Computed example of a mutant assay.
Amino acid sequence: MITNLRIGETDFKIGEKTYIMGILNVTPDSFSDGGRFNQIEAALDHVREMIEDGADIIDIGGESTRPNHIQISEEEEAARVVPVIKAIKERYKIPVSIDTYKSKVAKAALEAGADLVNDVWGLKYDPNMANVIKEYNVPVCIMHNRENMDYDNFRSDMLNDLKRSIEIGEKAGINKEKIIIDPGIGFAKTYEMNLEAMNHLEDLLQFDMPILLAASRKSVIGLTLDLPVTEREEGTIATSVLGVMKGCHFVRVHNVKANLRAIRMIEAILHNEKQLK
């Protein structure tokens, strides 16, 4: 069944195709492209390139969430993202997501024109985050994360963690139809757990919510292929194709063009098979 999710001024037909979220890191220390786009003109040029390549959403992050990253203040993070968000919204019509787990940063970003909050802590880090999202009536992407890897049963515990995050949002008054879920590849998971989570992405379909897969260039790809972050494109494309086959509605990637081409190819194959039945 195709349902509608409105992000900013754009309607996303969930179930019709897999949409592309392009990554824009305005940080000096991101694991993949730190320092490349933390100047406004460079950031705008990259956004234009991603739009031309077929991005549907731009996800902006002002603090690296790579392993062992250094946490920065809310003020510094907001100072990084707010001018870029304003500049993007003035120049382009594409929806903008703010990648943050801090409510003050989310509020500043939403005031600047952001259309969606992407919270890597699934509303569990900052107790006011859900209230801010409710106040601005925007969609939220809830990612699986936890402080440890002490799982009794990894798959069941991951689903229960996501349920608790969803409950936090609903208790704050966030409409269930505005929630996207993310399995959190690379967060609070061993190498084997990351592979298991991707192999069983269909587990997330039980929530009846849009699913976002964000595996682009992550360590699970590097460990599997024994490759540095600069050489993980083919591995990323493989995860995007898997995401489509498993029913994901969004993929968050660095290289929009390459992933979009692979996604459209697998969608054509799957759509043709459905048409023949």
Rank of each mutant, 00 (worst) to 15 (best):
D208K: 00
L213R: 03
I221L: 03
N131W: 08
L24H: 12
W121E: 00
F154L: 06
I98E: 14
R164M: 13
L260C: 15
L110W: 05
P67D: 04
Q39Y: 13
N199E: 13
D152M: 14
T230V: 11
G173P: 05
L5T: 00
T27I: 08
L276I: 10
R66Y: 03
G122R: 09
Q71I: 12
V229Y: 00
A262C: 15
V84D: 08
N148Q: 12
K104S: 09
E76A: 13
L110N: 05
V220S: 07
I168N: 09
T18P: 01
L242G: 12
D99T: 08
R155Q: 11
R80H: 08
Y151A: 12
L212N: 01
A188S: 14
V132H: 01
K189V: 09
I180C: 02
V96C: 01
S103A: 03
I57L: 06
N259K: 09
F250E: 03
K171M: 11
K134Y: 13
A43G: 06
L110A: 08
L213K: 03
R36Y: 15
A108Y: 08
V26F: 05
M265S: 12
E16Q: 12
A108I: 06
M149R: 15
A106N: 03
K107S: 05
I60E: 14
I221R: 01
G247H: 04
L201M: 10
M158W: 06
P228I: 02
G243P: 01
H254S: 07
S73A: 10
K89M: 01
S240T: 10
G184Y: 08
N199T: 11
N148T: 15
V244F: 02
I40Y: 09
V138G: 01
E63Q: 10
D203H: 12
P95K: 04
I180K: 03
T239W: 07
R66G: 01
Q71A: 14
K107Q: 10
K13D: 00
N175H: 09
E77F: 09
E16N: 10
F154G: 06
E233K: 15
I85L: 11
I70M: 06
D53G: 05
K218W: 10
P127G: 04
K163E: 02
E234Y: 14
T18W: 00
F37G: 02
T239Q: 08
R232V: 04
G122E: 06
P28C: 07
D45Q: 15
A172Q: 14
L223K: 15
